[in-house]
Simulated scan of single mutants.
Amino acid sequence: MRNTKKPADCKISGFFLLLFFTLSNNSFAQHPSPFSTRNESPFSLIYGLPLASPAKLLENNQSRWISSFNISNTINSQTSNSENLFIDIETWHVNFLYDTNLKENWMLRVQLPYIVHSGGFLDSPIDSYHQALGLPENIRPDFPHEQINIDYNLNNQNQVNINSRQNALGDISFQLAWQAHLTNRSALSYWLSIKLPTGNEDKLTGSGATDVASWASMSYRLTDTRWLYGQGGLLYMGDSDVFTDIHKNWAGFANAGIKFQLWNEIELKAQLDVHSALYDSKLDFLNQVIQLTFGGSYTINSKQKLDFAIAEDIKEGSSPDVNFNISWWIYL
């Protein structure tokens, strides 16, 4: 039988075949990398709560740098029978992470944080952002922009009072990871972290104690373009020099996310992060946290990738009002 398909039809069919193979190539089998975020509250950053971690570790003789920049902004006033908290702050949290393969199935991560607490510049844009999306503004409209104030009282005794810019090195951590399982469809790794007291507790850039955390990270491919990922673990916090009367020694943490691969270079992700209370307090801002992070990644080339994300507090008043994250991944 003679082929009656017109040249234009052939071109159209060829285009869709090319599109199909493009959307089905191996780049979609890439295991997801979570957003490099966590609860960015000044009262949380001082502890060794780990960033969300990838389930797939580096391959043999591979290493990478990750530069992650978080800007969080919050204003909150809370009171209980024995506690009073007012916080109006913008925090810049820069993480420099170096990952290297030690030997088959083992990876070492070194995490160097730098923390700045200030009045910032995002108060006005965040007001506009909340208004545009119809999000709750809490007490924001009642206070002037770009001020810094952290004041916490327990049983009428002042515990923390900061009203000027603070910046210093945070608590350095070392993390060891083991690849327990890896296929094209799923991955599982186990992590162990130790956080050292290199920060400054008076500036709220460290806790003055050593923390240890252990967790498992997993990822699972649903389809060629959709992945699930998550982690869960326990954190032991040494006896802190901050909030010594109410700080806890143990906390649990977890996250779960989904990745959609729209194109070879572009992916969208949504990530839910939770952790139990770090303090024995009735105040929401010092209690358990639920936050949602959403955004995307852009693959620049085979060696570099950029993440862009926004985190919002799902449990209102328990974490910063908003957090913006930019992370730059460089594979060596």
Rank of each mutant, 00 (worst) to 15 (best):
S186Y: 08
S173F: 04
I326Q: 12
G134W: 11
A8L: 13
I246E: 03
L51G: 01
K259P: 00
F285D: 07
Y220F: 14
V322L: 13
L262P: 02
A254H: 01
Q288S: 14
H130L: 13
F20K: 14
N264V: 02
G48P: 03
K203F: 10
I330G: 02
L283P: 11
A251N: 04
S193P: 03
S302H: 15
L182S: 15
K282C: 01
Q288P: 02
S68A: 13
A309P: 00
S124V: 09
T225V: 07
Y236Q: 05
L306E: 02
K195M: 09
Y129D: 01
E90M: 09
A132K: 14
L268K: 04
N70W: 01
L332G: 05
P320K: 09
D239F: 09
R64D: 00
T4Y: 15
L97K: 08
W328E: 01
A209V: 06
L58V: 03
Y298F: 15
Q131S: 13
N61T: 02
M107D: 03
D321G: 11
L235W: 05
K103I: 07
A132E: 08
E267N: 12
R38G: 04
P50R: 05
E40D: 06
L154C: 05
N105I: 01
G252D: 10
P113N: 05
T210V: 12
L85V: 00
L23E: 04
W65L: 07
N25A: 10
I150L: 13
S327F: 07
I66P: 00
S281C: 08
D171T: 02
P144D: 10
I71Y: 02
E146H: 15
R165N: 12
A55R: 03
L45D: 02
L286H: 08
S82Q: 12
W191P: 00
F260Q: 07
L122P: 15
L85I: 01
I75M: 14
G317Y: 14
Q175N: 09
H130R: 09
E267Q: 13
Q175A: 09
S24A: 13
Q288E: 14
S67Q: 05
D273A: 02
T205F: 06
W227E: 03
S44Q: 10
L57Y: 08
M107I: 00
H145Q: 14
A251C: 01
D99Y: 15
T100D: 07
K305W: 05
D280R: 13
G170H: 11
I46W: 04
W92Q: 12
S63P: 03
G14C: 10
F243P: 00
Q261N: 15
S128K: 14
N161K: 14
R64S: 09
G199T: 00
H275R: 03
K203Y: 10
Y331K: 09
F143G: 05
N61V: 01
N153K: 11
L51P: 02
Q62H: 15
H181I: 07
N163S: 14
I258W: 15
N26Q: 11
E267A: 14
R226N: 07
Y236H: 12
K56G: 02
D123A: 06
L97A: 10
K103M: 12
L292R: 08
A168W: 11
I46H: 03
V289E: 04
S67H: 06
A209R: 01
A209E: 03
T198N: 06
N264I: 00
N95I: 00
I126P: 12
P32F: 07
S80I: 00
N323K: 12
F294Q: 15
I162D: 15
P42D: 08
Q157R: 12
